[in-house]
Design a protein around this nucleic acid. Structure first.
Lengths: 280, 280
DNA sequence: ACTGGTATGGAACGAACGTTCCAACACTCA
DNA sequence: TGAGTGTTGGAACGTTCGTTCCATACCAGT
């Protein structure tokens, strides 16, 4: 830290009161970043003037300069790992994409809460109701991946898709026991938002996977997962979204272990009988 | 974060200007913790009064209360990891998945040669031929994502799918100028392998995206990309595959910049005319 | 004991800040 | 088209903060 260096360098020339202040600065940087001169003076049992004198003696432009330095240090420290990694600065396209996608996965998975995850997995594992998945056009493939894998684990999972008539009918037939997973990022597809709104109004339990808590989908949902989708090309990246989907699928598989294993075995038997799968 | 919860809860009742402020609060919490009302107002292109109104609408005691909340959240976040682990703590399942998926992306993108990538992107950007995408059932969603995005950039991209009759006809009609992207992981779908073999025999230029150089698909293809697909649940993870697909799409977009931009503009105009997309 | 120099914190000053009020504006509905 | 409602940002107000000044306390050397 910039400040620590300066304190170390000037350490010998500090007066007793200044030294007490410096110790507080090193041990409670939050107090410097968020607090005032008076706060620091009280914490170090000294006067406000001593605090300012220390700051100038360290070469800062008054307490304001000291505070700014500590704030910058803290801001760097709590920047997402994804951004900090960027410092080596990738030159070629591949490593730039690598950093981008790793950042998407990291941000998406670290910003999600255990409680929300557990609650959503529990509902997705409840086979008394159906699971509807509604997705914007841009993320349709990822949604299909989620549906396909959930279908392998349990009954009653379907992608809400097709034309306007079919979509509205499907949603109209959804009931209170059902779950709607709605997936869309900014520049939301209007029909997706309207569909989710209709479902929510009917008492369907909604989960939103979207880009921001300010998404129109977030306000409809019981739980919202925000995904990072920084893309290197003209489109959003759904890598983070897919990682989240995998996490949900794994959770459901874990909860439905017995039934799911049975289902997978039956499919396996059918494939074996038809020799649908080959090893090489 | 406390603030994020409140924003998510009140999200629907926010006015446009308040929403802009809320976005800045979520994306740049440092600005709230270290900055002033005026800073936030400037960053969100709104007035100071709007900032204060948002804070009170969220249930805080003015901007001061909002700032204190963000400061506490930040202070908790930057406490030594040793202390942080003790808290609610992200569950083991999440961080295990995180490592897994980051590993998939990293392995997939780093084991990629520049030359192969450039060659494949060049062929995918060649609009004199078509691009066929053939995928195993397990990765169909990712394939669809690739097709959908390539379709936005150029003509003549199609997913080879449907029943046996349709698939064989589509492949039979493919010629030497066409490119086949074949995507499948171990326990290969027989029909995919057969389809790729048929296409290759007809002189179609093939790219394989698969799990190993020993895959039956690799021997048919001009270029093979191996993807890492370690999954935490019962299924393979296609996160690495999707990251690769994004890289290909970005490359094509770059090479076809002019035409692609025109296509995207036309789509944009159609969406605008129909108001298909909404911002909130 | 006295003196010169330093260290220290209280108090006053000026600047910056958060808050509140209000006029202008945009939008909706009749 | 006009009335009414809700939204927005500018400006004034009172407060808090950082800074500076200065009287007091402390210490070492004579």
């Amino acid at each position: 830290m910039e400040v620590a260096d300066r304190i170390g360098r000037a350490g010998a020339t500090l007066t007793p009161a200044e030294r007490r202040v410096a110790e507080v600065v090193l041990e409670q940087p939050q107090l410097v970043a968020f607090g005032t001169v008076a706060d620091l003076a009280e914490a170090s049992a000294s006067g406000a003037a001593t605090v300012v004198r220390l700051a100038t003696k360290l070469g800062f432009d008054g307490f304001t300069g000291l505070q700014a330095s500590v704030q910058h240090a803290l801001a760097n420290q709590l920047r997402p790992a994804a951004e900090r990694i960027r410092e080596p600065a990738a030159s070629d396209a591949i490593s730039r994409h690598l950093q981008l996608e790793v950042g998407n996965v990291t941000t998406t998975l670290t910003s999600l809460s255990d409680e929300a995850l557990a609650a959503v997995v529990a509902r997705l594992s409840d086979t008394t109701g159906r699971v509807l998945v509604l997705s914007g056009d841009a993320s349709l493939g990822v949604a299909q991946q989620l549906v396909s894998e959930l279908c392998s684990l349990r009954d009653g999972v379907l992608l809400v898709d097709g034309n306007d008539v079919a979509v509205r009918r499907t949603i109209a037939l959804a009931g209170e026991g059902d779950v709607l997973v709605v997936l869309d990022l900014r520049r939301y597809d209007r029909w997706v938002v309207e569909g989710a709104r209709a479902a929510s109004a009917q008492g369907v339990w909604c989960v939103a996977v979207t880009d921001s808590l300010l998404s129109p989908l977030a306000s409809l949902a019981e739980h919202t997962f925000t995904v990072a989708a920084a893309g290197g090309g003209p489109f959003d990246s759904h890598v983070g979204t897919l990682a989240l989907a995998n996490l949900l699928v794994a959770g459901v598989a874990d909860r439905l272990r017995a039934q799911a294993a049975d289902r997978l075995d039956r499919a396996e038997a059918a494939w074996r009988a038809a020799e649908s799968l080959v090893d090489r």
